[in-house]
Computed example of a mutant assay.
Amino acid sequence: MTTVRARRVYEAPDAADGRRVLVDRLWPRGLAKAAAHIDEWLKAIAPSDELRVWYGHDPAKFGEFRRRYGDELRDPERAAALAHLRELAAAGPVTLLTATRDLEHSQAADLAERLQRPT
């Protein structure tokens, strides 16, 4: 079973994290790169600026955000990034990191769910 989970980048690393991948386009505010404990920063998987601004982290829009983000994940660059995440997950635990306060309604949570599904 693939182990993929989403966590806030500001939380202390956990022994069960496995490979820690930042999935935000922008570097988290106030977080020093040396203190981040990030194995990889995969900017290519992040939602477009247009989608991010439209969504505005409004939980009422999350269903439509997921649909639109799914469409964006078909873009060749994002599709390659998603395939890379699948490869990482096949090799061991992966933790998708985001700076978003509302983790449940974030692209990291959406990606974790997508990666848990069989392909």
Rank of each mutant, 00 (worst) to 15 (best):
6 A>Y: 10
7 R>T: 04
7 R>I: 03
7 R>S: 00
8 R>M: 05
9 V>G: 08
9 V>T: 10
9 V>F: 01
11 E>L: 11
12 A>C: 02
12 A>Y: 03
12 A>H: 06
13 P>Y: 08
16 A>N: 13
16 A>G: 13
18 G>M: 00
20 R>N: 01
20 R>P: 05
20 R>G: 05
21 V>M: 06
22 L>M: 05
24 D>N: 01
26 L>V: 14
31 L>Q: 04
31 L>Y: 01
32 A>Q: 11
32 A>V: 01
33 K>I: 05
34 A>N: 01
35 A>M: 04
35 A>N: 12
36 A>E: 09
37 H>R: 11
38 I>D: 03
39 D>L: 00
40 E>N: 04
40 E>L: 15
41 W>P: 01
42 L>V: 08
42 L>Y: 09
42 L>S: 06
45 I>D: 05
45 I>M: 04
47 P>Q: 07
47 P>T: 12
48 S>N: 08
48 S>A: 08
48 S>D: 08
49 D>Q: 13
51 L>V: 04
52 R>Q: 04
53 V>N: 10
53 V>F: 09
53 V>L: 11
55 Y>P: 11
56 G>N: 07
56 G>P: 08
58 D>N: 14
60 A>D: 15
60 A>S: 14
61 K>M: 10
61 K>V: 13
61 K>I: 05
62 F>T: 09
62 F>V: 06
66 R>T: 15
67 R>L: 12
68 R>W: 08
68 R>F: 00
68 R>Q: 14
68 R>C: 08
70 G>Y: 06
72 E>M: 08
74 R>T: 14
74 R>P: 01
75 D>V: 10
76 P>G: 07
76 P>I: 07
78 R>G: 05
80 A>P: 03
80 A>I: 03
81 A>D: 10
82 L>Q: 12
83 A>Q: 14
83 A>M: 07
84 H>D: 07
84 H>F: 09
85 L>N: 13
90 A>K: 12
90 A>C: 06
91 A>G: 15
93 P>C: 08
94 V>Q: 06
99 A>C: 00
99 A>M: 03
99 A>Q: 01
99 A>L: 02
99 A>P: 02
101 R>E: 14
101 R>D: 13
106 S>V: 02
106 S>M: 03
107 Q>W: 06
109 A>G: 04
110 D>G: 00
110 D>C: 14
113 E>S: 05
114 R>Q: 15
115 L>T: 11
115 L>H: 12
115 L>R: 11
116 Q>E: 13
116 Q>L: 15
116 Q>S: 15
116 Q>P: 00
117 R>S: 10
117 R>F: 03
118 P>C: 06
118 P>D: 14
119 T>K: 05
